[in-house]
């Protein structure tokens, strides 16, 4: 029974990856075609610069969706459709894996990769209801594909029961919320990268033409901030929940274990990011760099720290 479920789960992941690949191609074609003379009028919202009032107010008065066309171009629609299908398969893969193991599907690195990428793509899909951020598709789906590729080939392990230290409901809460936070940080980083490119273009540098169809650097910065603070709240919770769990399992709530150190570093970087945005001279590109550094630290924490650093969190299963 377990074997069957595991193989269905794998089948679902591989199918999801195949479809994500097509979605990725479509997202990329969409970006490329945006460089061609835009078929739909997609003007960046006008920004009244100077003329009294502060930048803050101007930004807020132009808080309309940048993408005026309700559905967007064809390739983008196809890409989103494919992403939704792939994501449903991806989620089923995680669920099947959980059923096979008889527990939550995030107890080793393979499972965590599987589930966390599903959550990241899920967050990407969910934020579309709030803001049109489909232009991030190539980045997010590309990231998910690379992660899934490495996860299935390098991290794969068979279903094994939980060691006593992991038998706790905190495994469910702590890890799930950490993944949610990661999802928001990923999207925040994607927006921040776009923001940096956009700022270069606005500064007069020669840039890919699709940037002209995206929101202004300033608007991107606000979007990134709003996504990242949600991630930050989740991360703060992860940190606290982790400390509570560590107290239960290891007898101390904080011991500067390598994983604890990195979770702390990431938290401090994003606290720095939030401060940077409120500090004169740090708004704009500098704070965007911090957001990207923060996300890199998240990825580092999951890959390098798990695999090569010694510590109590030795649950990669490898």
């Amino acid at each position: 029974m377990t074997e069957t479920l595991v193989s269905y789960s794998l089948l679902a992941v591989y199918s999801a990856m195949a479809i994500y690949t097509f979605a990725f191609i479509m997202f990329t074609i969409d970006l490329a075609r945006r460089s061609a003379p835009a078929p739909v009028a997609l003007k960046a919202p006008p920004v009244a610069v100077g003329k009294g009032g502060t930048a803050l107010l101007d930004r807020l008065t132009t808080d309309a969706p940048a993408d005026a066309a309700p559905k967007g171009p064809r390739f983008l629609r196809v890409a989103m459709g494919l992403t939704v299908i792939a994501w449903l398969l991806h989620v089923s893969a995680a669920v099947l894996r959980g059923l096979a193991a008889g527990r939550v599907p995030w107890a080793n690195m393979f499972e965590f990769t599987l589930t966390a990428t599903a959550i990241i793509v899920g967050v990407f899909l969910a934020v579309q209801f709030w803001q049109d951020l489909r232009f991030l598709g190539a980045f997010i789906i590309g990231f998910a594909l690379i992660a899934l590729g490495i996860g299935t080939t390098n991290f794969y392990v068979d279903v094994v029961p939980l060691p006593p230290a992991l038998q706790s409901y905190w495994l469910v809460i702590h890890v799930f919320v950490a993944s949610l936070g990661t999802g928001f940080f990923a999207i925040g980083a994607a927006i921040s990268i776009t923001q940096l490119l956009q700022a270069r273009r606005e500064g007069g540098a020669r840039s890919p033409k699709f940037l002209a169809t995206l929101p202004t650097a300033e608007k991107l910065e606000v979007l990134a901030y709003r996504v990242i603070v949600v991630g930050f709240v989740f991360w703060t919770f992860t940190l606290i929940a982790g400390a509570i769990w560590a107290e239960h399992a290891w007898g101390r709530y904080w011991g500067w274990d390598t994983k604890e150190v990195w979770t702390f570093i990431i938290w401090v970087i994003f606290a720095g990011y939030i401060h940077a945005r409120a500090t004169r001279g740090w708004r704009g590109s500098r704070s965007a760099v911090l957001a990207i550094v923060g996300f890199c630290a998240v990825v580092f924490n999951f890959t390098i720290v798990n695999l090569f650093f010694k510590g109590l969190h030795a649950y990669s299963g490898l």
């Binding site: 401090v268 401060h275 940077a276 001279g281 740090w282 911090l290």
Partner: peptide, 11 residues
């Protein structure tokens, strides 16, 4: 604010 930011990043 600038010092707070600097110290945070330094930390």
């Amino acid at each position: 604010m600038r010092t707070a930011l600097f110290l945070l990043l330094l930390l």
